[in-house]
């Protein structure tokens, strides 16, 4: 099925319709591991956003020089470089967040969402469109992480972005701060999305 897309579609596609986490189920490791607060989710999203944008631009501009046989190695090399940069810069300028995220910054390298965009899009398209695609995907990732982070922080700690919501006597639902809570929350969100999708379909059919 050949698809012609406009640059605007490149941008919008990744945000919701093909949301990397909620629809494509990619990049679940960071999405589950470090989203126990909105702040952590935001820091992880920012690092990932930086890496995917830089990688997409570089890969699409160098696509002429990368032989097919070693393209995956080359993509990984590019991604790993930017991840290392992001890691060092976070450590220097946001040490508290860096400590919270720990090894998961380095693990952005193996976030298949990023590698997937290189292989599926940047290696075949112009620099500008690759950047738009990367921005869209990055925003989609950010939205998903913020949804997870918001839900988990509100119930698990009783705050949103460190602002107390329920007063001092709130009983935190500890499970949502723990890794298990990530799975539960992702399940809830996907369940909710599926439910509304079904409703919409039923409404259209009727």
């Amino acid at each position: 099925m050949p698809r012609e897309t406009t640059p605007a579609q490149d941008l919008i596609r990744g945000i919701w319709e093909e949301n990397p986490v909620l629809i494509q189920m990619l990049g679940l490791c960071p999405a589950l591991a470090v989203t126990n607060t909105v702040k952590n989710a935001l820091a992880m999203s920012a690092a990932t956003f930086f890496v995917i944008c830089c990688s997409s631009v570089l890969v699409s501009s160098c696509k002429r020089f990368i032989p097919r046989e070693v393209r995956i190695s080359a993509y990984i090399l590019v991604i790993a470089t930017f991840v290392t940069l992001a890691d060092m810069m976070l450590q220097a300028y946001a040490p508290v967040q860096h400590k919270e995220l720990g090894a998961f910054i380095a693990l952005i390298v193996v976030n298949c969402m990023i590698l997937g965009r290189q292989e599926a899009f940047s290696s075949k398209n112009t620099v500008l469109r690759s950047l738009l695609d990367a921005i869209g995907t990055g925003i989609g990732f950010t939205i998903a992480l913020l949804m997870l982070g918001g839900f988990r922080e509100i119930l698990g700690i009783g705050t949103f972005f460190d602002i107390p919501l329920f007063g001092s006597n709130f009983e935190p639902w500890v499970v949502f701060v723990l890794p298990a809570g990530g799975f539960l929350t992702l399940g809830f969100i996907i369940l909710g999305m599926g439910y509304f999708e079904e409703r919409k379909k039923a409404g259209n059919a009727a």
Partner: peptide
């Protein structure tokens, strides 16, 4: 199990 994890 949920209660145990949520409100230990």
């Amino acid at each position: 199990a949920f209660l145990q994890a949520a409100f230990p």
